[in-house]
């Protein structure tokens, strides 16, 4: 995949965030419905459009709409709710350490973020190398400690096919609510309010985003009116 080598059918739509979907049924059915136009998603799909039966990894929770969206395109979709898995892992780890004798060696060392991340990745994101053509990371990097994020990024880089893309979102300020993301169509994402799984850990600066994705050969960012930056990173 290479966006420099492809011709575009049309210019990207302006990145406009809006809080009501212009559909009669959806707007009336759910007043909390919050959608945003995602040029990053549009670009992500455009990049994969040349790959037959592209394999996509969604790092958010599983949604019928998202699964259908990709299956109808003939893609193979995998879901792995990384933040949910992380929360379960941390809870289990805390429980285990709580039960361990206080005198045990390395008690404090085992609580460091990097040690936790290493242990977490022993079981998480276990996919063969170069398994996926695209990864939907959404805003999960905002919720991880930098030490964890960098390790996750290394793993994602490994499981991504050369030329594959990662779509990630970065908030410019701590979001008011915790949201999960559900694809509505090729350029629209629904923000589904959800119980808070994790506290917003950090606001990334541009430089930090580039550092996080330093291994990737190319990147493109879009900034919406809601000040959410969408980044598309190519391996």
């Amino acid at each position: 995949m290479n966006w420099m080598a492809k011709t575009r059918p049309g210019a990207a739509a302006p990145a406009i965030a809006h809080t009501s979907k212009p559909g009669p049924a959806s707007a009336s059915a759910n007043t909390n419905l919050k959608v945003r136009t995602s040029n990053g998603l549009k670009e992500f799909l455009w990049l994969m459009s040349d790959v037959p039966h592209a394999r996509v990894l969604d790092l958010g929770p599983v949604w019928q709409a998202t699964v259908n969206f990709f299956l109808e395109k003939g893609y193979r979709i995998s879901t792995d709710d990384l933040l949910g898995t992380w929360k379960e892992f941390v809870s289990a780890e805390e429980e285990r350490l709580r039960a361990a004798p206080l005198t045990s060696e390395g008690y404090s060392a085992r609580l460091t973020a990097s040690a936790l991340a290493d242990k977490f990745l022993e079981n998480a994101l276990q996919y063969p190398e170069e398994s996926f053509h695209g990864v939907l990371g959404w805003d999960l990097f905002d919720y991880f400690d930098p030490a964890v994020s960098s390790r996750i990024m290394d793993r994602l880089f490994g499981i991504l096919h050369p030329g594959g893309a990662v779509l990630a979102l970065f908030h410019s300020r701590a979001p008011e609510r915790f949201h999960r993301y559900r694809i509505i169509d090729t350029q629209t994402v629904e923000l589904v309010a959800a119980p808070t799984l994790a506290v917003h850990a950090r606001v990334f600066q541009n430089r930090e985003i580039l550092e996080l994705f330093a291994k990737f050969r190319s990147s493109k960012t879009f900034v919406g009116r809601d000040q959410v930056r969408e980044g598309l990173f190519l391996k």
Partner: peptide, 19 residues
């Protein structure tokens, strides 16, 4: 699954190009 991965990877590898 393993075969699917390899087959699809091979088909798309030729399409991807590095700058």
């Amino acid at each position: 699954p393993a075969v699917v991965y390899k087959a699809a990877a091979a088909s798309s590898e030729s399409e991807s190009s590095k700058r």
